[in-house]
């Protein structure tokens, strides 16, 4: 794929945010799209948003569960960028008009106290770089019509990022068993998902190691103070205007996202 085609694909995705109209899967309109093309298309959008004043606050890892990998026929996760305007406070109604087809999932977020630069990052180095964990809800969204995504579609679309709500109770990693920590997600009081940390690639730390090494190979460092969303503990569910979603974690507290009624 030549530079012009990449730019055009990035433009289509950026336009989808503005118009609220999703586009057809890039894999259906751009035959021969490669992994490199997909990440380049993601980066072109991020660069334009940064030029417009946004800043990078961290990264997310997607496609980390056995179920999602089976669904998309992949055996590797992918990553996207988290920008400053993705973050909402627990009590703040999240405007729905920034989304096209939002869904939500519970995650254990990591906040870094030291930079992590791959390749070659190991588990102990990743753990040592984590300042604390936070309960989190990630709102995922797709600019691809009907979520008909393949691996390359979601990579090009910033790993289907949408927004983030972080809880306010930090926990050091010494105090929890990340693999066996349970989470229950309720939507308007009804249980809509349950899971354990190990649903994320066996452990959320594995996801952090994979991210550090994968972006490291591209010359990118995970920065001190950045947040990493390592992946969901259960299947994502839809959200509608007026919904209240809470994720409760064993040993990590809880976090609530409110959606505006607009």
């Amino acid at each position: 794929m030549d530079a012009g085609t990449r730019t055009e694909a990035a433009r289509q995705l950026l336009d989808a945010y503005k118009t609220g109209q999703p586009i057809a899967p890039l894999t259906s309109t751009h035959h021969g799209l490669s992994l490199e093309d997909a990440y380049a298309i993601q980066l072109l959008q991020i660069e334009e948003l940064l030029a417009g004043g946004r800043t990078v606050k961290g990264h997310k890892v997607g496609l980390t569960s056995a179920a999602m990998q089976r669904l998309l026929g992949v055996d590797e996760p992918d990553f996207g960028h988290l920008l400053d305007d993705f973050f909402y406070l627990e009590h703040e109604p999240i405007p729905m008009d920034r989304f096209l087809q939002p869904r939500i999932e519970p995650e254990v977020a990591f906040v870094l106290k030291a930079p992590l630069r791959g390749p070659g990052v190991t588990v102990h180095e990743a753990i040592a770089a984590v300042d604390f964990a936070l309960p989190a809800l990630e709102i995922v969204d797709s600019r691809i019509a009907d979520w008909k995504i393949g691996l390359l579609d979601t990579i090009a679309d910033n790993a289907s990022s949408g927004a983030v709500v972080l809880g306010s109770t930090p926990t050091p990693l010494h105090d929890i068993d990340l693999r066996l920590a349970g989470a229950v997600m309720t939507r308007n009081g009804t249980v809509v998902g349950t899971g354990a940390g190990g649903a994320v690639l066996g452990s959320p730390i594995t996801s952090l190691v994979w991210l550090a090494n994968t972006v490291g190979a591209r010359g990118v460092t995970l920065e001190k103070g950045h947040v990493v969303l390592p992946g969901s503990l259960c299947a994502m569910v839809t959200v509608a205007p007026g919904d209240t979603v809470t994720a409760r974690f064993s040993g990590l507290g809880s976090v609530t996202a409110r959606f505006a009624r607009n």
């Binding site: 179920a67 066996l180 349970g182 229950v184 349950t194 899971g195 354990a196 649903a199 066996g202 259960c234």
Partner: peptide, 19 residues
């Protein structure tokens, strides 16, 4: 909140809690 992690042949295939 009591969770379970289901592994088959060393790979996590599912998880849930008592909820």
């Amino acid at each position: 909140l009591e969770a379970v992690l289901v592994e088959v042949d060393g790979v996590v295939v599912d998880s849930a809690t008592g909820a």
